[in-house]
Amino acid sequence: MKSNNLETIYVMWLREMKRFLRAKSRIIGTLLLPFFFLLAVGSGFNSGFSLPGAPPGVNYLNFLVPGILGMTMLFSSMSTGISVLWDKEFGFLKEIMVAPVKRFAIVLGRIAGGVTTALIQGILILILSLFLGFKMVNLPSFILALLFMFLIGIGFIGFGVAIASKMEDTQGFSLIMQFVVFPIFLFSGAFFPVINFPGWLRPIAYLDPLTYGVDGLRSSLIGFSQFPLFLDLIILLIFGSLMVILGSWLFSKTEI
């Protein structure tokens, strides 16, 4: 039974990888937006500019890269999670649902595939940013950053699966992007420290799980953060577990 679940996870992962490697335009498309942000926003502030709330001497590009990394993980993960909807639309979901396998294993497989592809994209962005002048503190910091990227990925794929399981068709897709994904990105403090939000907006930022993801990335990559590292870790762990459970549960109840 156990090996059967592993095989299910593996085959879902394999499918995700094959589709990912074949969709060259998708890879370039998802990398372009974060790259433009780095180029246009990151280089717009010159090095003499000091950001309120940030420690003096931190170059804005260095401050921005972790935020953009969080954004890349968010967008990539949400689109993998929501891709359940496309499987529904193209009928392939029926093939998956009628197979004699555990539904939670299917969701875990999708998460495994989605996290892998999101990590690949995140790492590519990180490499690109090195060329633009980004400086990491040291190599171990990169390992810690990978852990944060991983947790962000799991959480938002689970969230995406949960949303997609509740939706009938792909009509609401752009609505979700505009009213869920973008706000999560914009309120996460990717562009400037969360404490710069006016007091009445701050709670929203504190409720946004990506805030802790970006903060954790910043803490590991450039050694600047607002919350203690372990707080970021614990909140992301809780968020991730909750979303995986919620996603699996809603997915397993889907009728088609």
Binding site: E7, T8, Y10, V11, L14, R15, K18, R19, R22, A23, F90, G91, F92, L93, K94, E95, I96, A99, P100, V101
Partner: peptide, 18 residues
């Protein structure tokens, strides 16, 4: 109910593994 971004062989292989 096929995954049309996979080949015919891959669709069968996916199924067999599931």
């Amino acid at each position: 109910a096929l995954d049309n971004r996979l080949t015919g062989f891959e669709n069968l292989d996916f199924h067999a593994r599931l």
